[in-house]
Design a protein around this nucleic acid. Structure first.
Lengths: 156, 156
DNA sequence: TTTAAATCGGACAAATATGTCCTAATAACT
DNA sequence: AGTTATTAGGACATATTTGTCCGATTTAAA
């Protein structure tokens, strides 16, 4: 007899919301570069995400002025050309997940810091700084390049 | 009027379960080095974690033979001295969170790989490898050192 | 001015993670 | 043998994240 024990959780880098957010923003950016405004439906279809949930995430990105939204018929989402290279992954992550990349102890302690660190403090700080640096230095423009060259993908 | 918008999720390295697991294992290891077997109650108290939830996590660590448990009066948890330097953080994470550190796309794609990568594939692989390396190379013994020297902490 | 296509946003529903409670089993001591 | 201190594990409860539904609002075009 086989017993299945439900797994507790995944050590994942990003929340689902954040994953969809990055994918959506990347798709919008690539289409905006061709001066195409895109609808929620199209976005969800192209990045293979749940429509209504994606809508919530786009609202956030819109409120944080990462994407601009246009209501009404022929409306949709777009990003101004000149802003595409200036928008960094970190801004998207911040808009959706908050500052959690930047704060908090790897082992969940309330007051962990360099003076009173948890046992993994230094090692975590190091990796987190690398993640931070990656997010701060990667622009939406960079992500659209591979997409337009047909060497990266947003679904499958 | 202030409107509170609930945050979606945190970009966190580890699940709560995993955080407690690492803290518990570290505490058990440090006490085992002094030949002290420790009870669930004591562990939960020393790492400031919910007792019953910690019990579940210790069951997992026990089943994965990371800690050994002794039932009955004067029972508790312990780790054989000679195994403490051999147990790596990666084993603890694996016992609790499964292989999620090692698999899965940063943007949540089902079939993302070097041939058909998502736009952030390379950058994520790099960071994940660093995390992996850190987990594989950090032993429980290493974590107990600072604790015993009084320069690292498991609660607060 | 009506209609259709779209976003906005609140309320709800489902899934997962986190946490609690209780009973059974085990082992040491009296 | 009985009592007490302990882990094991199932069932349940709560919190959070993820996802859906629907009506209101906006805008362009017929």
């Amino acid at each position: 007899m086989t017993i299945f024990v439900t797994n507790l959780q995944a050590t994942k880098m990003f929340s689902k919301a954040c994953e969809y957010g990055i994918r959506a923003a990347t798709y919008i950016a690539s289409q905006s570069r061709a001066s195409r405004r895109v609808s929620l439906k199209e976005i969800a279809n192209e990045i293979d995400s749940p429509v209504a949930f994606t809508a919530k995430i786009l609202q956030r990105l819109s409120r944080h002025q990462i994407v601009s939204s246009v209501k009404g018929a022929f409306g949709g989402f777009e990003i101004e050309h000149e802003r595409i290279p200036l928008i960094k992954l970190s801004q998207i992550v911040y808009a959706i997940d908050g500052d959690s990349v930047y704060v908090g102890c790897g082992l969940g302690l309330k007051k962990c810091n360099a003076l009173k660190p948890c046992p993994v403090h230094d090692k975590f700080v190091e990796i987190r700084n690398e993640l931070k640096h990656m997010l701060d230095s990667t622009s939406l423009f960079e992500l659209t390049e591979g997409l337009e060259a047909g060497i990266t993908y947003l679904k499958r």
